[in-house]
Design a protein around this nucleic acid. Structure first.
Length: 419
DNA sequence: TGACGTCAAGATCCG
DNA sequence: CGGATCTTGACGTCA
């Protein structure tokens, strides 16, 4: 039995992995060509990053090809970039990475509006083309919601099943259905999924907001969903996320909080699962979850994470900074849960000026020998403006980021301090 | 007609 | 002019 963790689309803090886009107004063939080439390169770097960080589950952004299913995009991008796709596909296979895609809430297959349905079909075909060009098999899924209710959910579900017949075999072999937070509960999704003979994806946060009448535990529903996954679908997938404490219901938390997560994990740990985390800090939480459920990893993995977090901790809580340093001293231990517990508390604290200045000066330490006189002058004048309240801490940080880029300070560049 | 969610582009403002 | 901050875009449904 085994559980993998993955994240969606973006890896904040990882150089060269940002997606670009364009608006309809600026979507010339040339511009689109540029953006697609850039995004494919970013995807390649994401794949390599995942491989290097032992992450085996990843959602590819629907924005990979801007207007990928729109007549606005007149490029033959499938042919033009076929070789690039193939190279990335090889890297995906080499990394043993399972990729998926997830069209958003605006792809609605069960709409009563024929145009909306036609666009939804085109959009699903676009997602399939990407996965196909990457040479992935049918275990690379397209996650879809049922759609709207239109005041008559039974009729809307019927329409979904009818329009299902209009999709190509290739698309149908990839689609999996997910419960949403407003209309279709996991029970209703299971119903439709069973009828069409396709897998169901349990989403924990959607479920807590929109539970079915049947009173089963999340683990029971996950077990129900397990029966809809067969050999050609690959390992069962679920979505896990936590409610943001300070935002509206359904909003994802900024990180996966370890304690709450472990309570859930205990209920599914004996299953074979791929768990897609939906969370603001993306790859950071995927690494976190992998580490806190592992009881036999090397402390150097924690030290590597600490290197990236340390200045974000220092600018909030020098006390937590010291505690973690103490915690990581014993090289024979692997105190992942304690490490993340202290970290989470620190990251949720507000930034106070004295602590922030302390952290800024720590980072400045990397440049004080190499910086030019004018760079030094600029940094300290920005620091003074921050101290006196006429500038924000981010403007001082940006100066440090610029210096890190100019002098290629890798230790600083990889830090989450600048996010 | 605005809110919803997402994240980068685009626009504007400031020194 | 560069950097910081605000608004817009693109999608469909529902109140």
């Amino acid at each position: 039995m085994m559980i993998n963790f993955g994240y969606a689309c973006l890896a904040p803090g990882v150089a060269g992995t940002q997606m670009r886009s364009c608006t309809m107004r600026t979507a010339t063939a040339e511009r689109l060509r540029d953006v697609i080439a850039h995004n494919l390169q970013a995807l390649m770097r994401l794949v390599q990053y995942n491989k290097g960080n032992n992450i085996h589950l990843f959602r590819i952004s629907s924005d990979l090809i801007p207007f990928g299913s729109s007549p606005i995009n007149t490029l033959q991008w499938q042919e033009e970039f076929a070789d690039t796709f193939e190279k990335i596909g090889n890297a995906i296979a080499d990394a043993a990475l399972r990729v998926s895609m997830h069209p958003g809430q605006y792809t609605v297959l069960n709409s009563p509006d024929a145009d909306v349905v036609n666009r939804a079909i085109a959009d699903l075909e676009y997602h399939e083309q990407v996965l196909h060009l990457l040479k992935t098999d049918s275990t690379s899924k397209i996650i879809l919601h049922v759609g709207g209710a239109y005041g008559d959910k039974a009729a809307a579900s019927e329409r979904f099943c009818r329009n299902w017949g209009r999709l190509s075999d290739r698309v149908r072999s990839r689609i999996v259905l997910e419960n949403d937070e407003r209309f279709y509960s996991i029970a209703e999704v299971l119903n439709i999924a069973q009828r069409l003979g396709i897998p169901a994806v349990f989403d924990s946060l959607h479920h807590s907001i929109n539970p079915p009448e049947e009173n089963c535990s999340p683990a029971d529903w996950i077990w129900q969903c397990a029966k809809t996954w067969n050999q050609s679908d690959g390992r069962q997938k679920i979505h896990y996320s936590q409610q943001s404490a300070d935002r509206k219901p359904g909003a994802h938390s900024k990180t996966i909080y370890a304690e709450e997560f472990l309570q859930f994990y205990e209920t599914v740990r004996d299953m074979d699962l791929d768990i897609m985390l939906e969370v603001k800090d993306k790859n950071l939480s995927a690494i976190k979850c992998g580490l806190i459920v592992s009881d036999s990893s090397c402390i150097s993995r924690l030290e590597g994470e600490w290197a990236k977090y340390k200045y974000s901790v220092l600018e909030r809580s020098p006390k937590a900074y010291q505690r973690i340093r103490e915690l990581l001293k014993d090289k024979n231990e692997f105190p992942a849960r304690q490490f993340y517990s202290i970290l989470e508390q620190a990251i949720d604290e507000p930034i106070e000026k004295n602590n922030a200045v302390n952290a800024l000066l720590h980072v400045w330490g990397y440049f004080k020998e190499v910086a030019q006189p004018d760079e030094k002058k600029r940094f300290f004048s920005a620091l003074d403006r921050y101290k006196s309240g006429t500038a924000k801490v981010d403007s001082v940080k940006n100066q440090l980021l610029k210096l890190a880029q100019k002098y290629n300070e890798r230790y600083i560049l990889q830090s989450y301090y600048f996010l």
